[in-house]
Design a protein around this nucleic acid. Structure first.
Lengths: 339, 339
DNA sequence: TTGTATGCGTTATCAA
DNA sequence: TTGATAACGCATACAA
């Protein structure tokens, strides 16, 4: 590879002048600047990121810390990663994919100790997340996709659960439904303090209350079997429920089976919503389910952008909430009583 | 961060001695070595990767070039990435996630020109892939997840389509089926020379022939609607088909709908196989479909390992084929005629 | 067995 | 407006 020296020789100037001309870090006569740029172009010069990083203490590399795939299909995680990588790339940064080992703290220490990365992007953030405390304490710049219970002044991009719940409730209430049920994520995730489970649960309850429609929750089926059982229990206790929002994809499979087993049909007898699932997944169902699609790519992009902005300079905390996208499928309809 | 100099001062030796002691690159007296190691530990010394890379011309960073999510749920792509990242991490390497821009060639040139990466990992390789030619020509070490039509001496890890097809055919033949149909991926992908579409198509035909059972193909439904239509056409022309292997997840949805519309049931009236889909996806169906699950994580791991081995030293081409994993679900049964 | 000196490619400081 | 030079942290050839 051509180096700064090669360019300098060819343009008949000093290395420092070439550096200055190419970076605009100090005034350079237009004539020499042109000569330098031409020489650089002819040699196909590319600045060596390592040398630059060694000197400037900034590598323009971000680490995306991601845990082993949890539930779902990995689509969401994949979109976080691609969104973040794209946004980083647009801003001249690179994204290092860092699989979280047994000890995430150690992982971060390793990465930053090596001088490899300028900042860290966290995903799958739990309400109480030890990683944030460690990162704050060690002074490593970072941002979150998701957020802790009390984000304080930490930068984050997360789903706007309140708006999402409002949209969902408005959708079913607009169809004429008077009572909505909600199936949260599995008990394990809920107990683990997984943000989306807790927040979606709270916000759906609040939105239903605000809209003045009936609301039932407390179910946390994590599989098709559990989904089926939960649906049976739900109807036993609340036969007047006509709309159901489900967070776990596999639980939805069970619900659909239970509906069919009763001789019921979707959407005539039940309006079914998938919460935080992609349209690609919703299309796998028959009928195609209405879904509240998480803005995963956007969140990834935002997370990366915020982190880079923070690296470029200080400022107020950057905290963004983005609502899910309501994609109406064939599982939404007015309740029987109205038709 | 503590540097080599800090360690040297604390241990009362020269920098070069510290370097030697820590890297074992030349003999160091046990006593001083112990002193150095202790000093390093006390200071929490970590070698600066940039400085080391600048000197040694090797960064121990690999780039994973990945295209925008294609079809499916991204699970497979995600597993390639996580597998590769894990394997790299175990061997002391890091994985850079590089979203492919409009011009992948330029992307590679950029990455390597910057001196950032030691090698490149390719995924979503097409039968004729210009990237391989460019990489070969420019001397950048690389390996493929997937493979071109004629891989030559390029390292790769790919699905063993022949073994996979044999397993699938053996499964249905073992159940007593005498005629198998095959729905390939969408026409677009097929025409684009997407390896799995072409190879799976060829190998299923060959496997059926070898097993002496009837075989029908030529269908390429890429959506639920097309899947449904394809199934109707299939049965019109070949009413004696009792088993069907489908590559596109959404097409499978259509097939299931068509089966139900006929008043048929799975698996009594049709044995349905999902090819190259994960068990997580297969579980979304009702009944749970039998699937041939691609070894995506393993392929990612292998791809990274091969590349690292190649970087460590030369040797013969490393080329590995791994068969899919047959996960028998509730969509496999003996054909009607036998029951 | 250990220390000194040099260079990797860049940026930044200071003279000229 | 420009050029020489000293870092950045590490590895290595060479001298002691």
């Amino acid at each position: 590879m051509a180096s700064l020296r090669d360019v300098a020789e060819r343009a008949q100037v000093a290395v420092s002048t070439v550096s200055a001309a190419l970076n605009g870090t100090r005034p350079v006569a237009v004539a020499t600047k042109r000569r330098i740029e031409q020489a650089a172009a002819e040699l196909g010069y590319r600045p060596n990121l390592l040398a630059r990083g060694l000197q400037s203490k900034r590598t323009r590399i971000l680490a995306l810390l991601f845990p082993a795939p949890r539930s779902g299909f990995g689509l969401t995680e994949m979109q976080f990663a691609t969104g973040a990588a794209e946004a980083a790339s647009e801003l001249g940064y690179h994204l290092l994919l860092s699989p979280e080992s047994a000890d995430p703290i150690d992982e971060v220490r390793h990465l930053t100790g090596l001088g490899l990365v300028d900042g860290v992007l966290l995903m799958e953030v739990r309400l109480d997340d030890e990683r944030t405390e460690f990162l704050s304490a060690s002074g490593v710049p970072f941002s979150m996709i998701g957020r802790t219970r009390e984000p304080g002044s930490i930068d984050y991009a997360d789903i706007d659960f309140a708006a999402t719940a409002r949209d969902a409730v408005a959708h079913v209430a607009g169809l004429g439904h008077r009572k909505l049920a909600f199936f949260n994520l599995s008990t394990d995730l809920y107990a683990d303090g997984y943000g989306p489970a807790i927040r979606a649960g709270e916000e759906f309850a609040a939105a239903a209350r605000a809209a003045g429609i009936g609301y039932v929750d407390g179910f946390r089926p994590g599989s098709a079997k559990e989904g089926r059982a939960a649906f049976e229990r739900l109807l036993d206790a609340h036969p007047d429920v006509t709309a159901l929002a489900v967070m776990d994809d596999h639980a939805a499979v069970g619900v659909i089976a239970a509906v069919a087993a009763r001789g019921w049909h979707i959407p005539e007898d039940l309006t079914l919503l998938l919460v935080l699932s992609s349209a690609a997944v919703a299309e796998m169902f028959h009928p195609r389910l209405t879904t509240l699609e998480p803005p995963s790519t956007e969140l990834g992009r935002l997370g990366a952008r915020m982190l880079i902005e923070r690296l470029r300079g200080d400022g107020p905390p950057r905290q963004r909430l983005v609502p899910c996208n309501l994609v109406v499928g064939d599982s939404s309809a007015a309740p029987r009583s109205l038709s």
